[in-house]
Nucleic acid binder design. Structure first.
Lengths: 233, 233
DNA sequence: AATTTAAGTGTAAAATTAACACTAAGATAA
DNA sequence: TTATCTTAGTGTTAATTTTACACTTAAATT
């Protein structure tokens, strides 16, 4: 479908970009994916992966493209975070950035340094380098959002493998919320929701009682949601 | 401070605009402020107030400017909602819109039809006309957000006068949440938070027992928040 | 003086949350 | 082969929070 109309908003416009706050987890602490910039400005500094929005993609498509360029990930949990529009947030010119946050299973993918980047690397949240641009501001809001969201939407799973143990899941929650959680109460509550399918499979070769694997039952969640259920941890 | 750098992202860019979802309340139902468009596209159709972002203002400043142009309101509760970037959301050309939602005390202001608008008018949410562009999509998300937010942030007050009765406040909550609330439980809970200052003032000239006025104690709220308190209705 | 209308108020049952400690299973070390 | 180490898995009780519910009071109007 071709545009018929030739109207054009005849004024200067900000450039439009997206930045991605990508969280991963590997058993200990929550991790953040950063890239080292190859070019000015902020050459050799660490930054959130980001890039300009093409004319033929939405900002979400742009964010997914960037994320997949950095990690090879094709399907991921991604959600719009906030739009940052401070006039001087980029020293080059005015760039408005629509930030996204994503939760990925960091085991499943290999990091690749894309265009303009020296390398991509996971950092523990407590050991972050100084970030370029206004990216610490973006990150701060992303962490807030993640903390807020994790308790009333079943997104903790996105950080884990398809199969996971209850202890792993609890550990995800503990590191996002930065607080200890009672094991028995956690299990009672999460199992009570009937959203976890117990699998006929246990851990292998662990020097202790092997833990049962579970998977998140998306279908059950969808059905319950339609009946007015809403997740709350 | 002048820009030193002459770097320029050398590709075509979307135009950038904001749209405002403005809620008001006057005792009955929740209301939405719409404008009738003076020009094509969607000439004579109803739409959310909106406009292009200037190079020297943030999107939030832009939203406030638009809102103040429509209503004369200078200080209001406003919050970024979501950024809409579908490629064909505007028939003229590609326009990305950062939507805001605002809560205003609709008594305090007089509507003025600004540039490009025939008139501005309040509509009950249940009696809305068909909206231009993707504005019903924006509205839907705004309503979701408002419903979600009202229970864990003290924003219900923003729709009322400085002084209000508990019945008025309850009525705000009932119309946002679209459910009846038990009077005694509501009062117990909201008064228990110590966020309402009872005033030495009652309603006048009402043909029944006059209700006590209260005001929201912003200072107390700030202090409690810093101590880890968080509002929840 | 009687009527109308909404304000204002307390208690008890039900549901949810929070606190808490031992046994079971599997691998490894002695 | 037995003992040890480590984490999985499991229930009950008290405390707190939430829900349900009805009558009296005050002010204007008839």
């Amino acid at each position: 479908m071709k545009k018929q109309n030739t109207y054009h908003y005849p004024y200067e416009r900000p450039a439009l970009a997206t930045d991605c706050v990508i969280f991963g987890f590997d058993g200990g602490e929550l991790k953040l994916l950063l890239i080292e910039r190859e070019n000015e400005p902020f050459k050799n500094k660490w930054a959130l992966p980001g890039g300009f929005v093409y004319m033929q993609e939405t900002t979400e498509e742009c964010a997914k493209r960037i994320l997949s360029e950095k990690t090879g990930i094709k399907y991921m949990f991604i959600e719009q975070l906030y739009t940052f529009s401070d006039i001087d947030r980029d020293p080059r010119e005015r760039i408005v950035s629509v930030a996204y946050f994503a939760l990925v299973n960091k085991h499943q993918y290999e990091l690749v340094a894309g265009r303009d980047t020296i390398k991509a690397e996971w950092f523990e949240l407590s050991k972050l380098p100084k970030l370029a641009f206004d990216h610490s501001k973006i990150l701060k809001i992303a962490i807030q959002r993640l903390k807020g969201k994790v308790s009333y939407q079943p997104i903790g799973f996105e950080l884990l493998d398809e199969k996971f143990t209850l202890t792993q899941l609890q550990s995800v929650y503990e590191s996002i919320l930065e607080m200890p959680i009672d094991k028995r109460n956690f299990r009672k509550k999460i199992l009570g929701m009937k959203l976890l399918k117990p699998l006929d499979e246990k851990e292998q070769n662990v020097a202790r009682k092997a833990a049962q694997f579970f998977s998140f039952d998306k279908k059950a969640y969808k059905e319950l949601t339609q009946k007015g259920f809403h997740f709350e941890l």
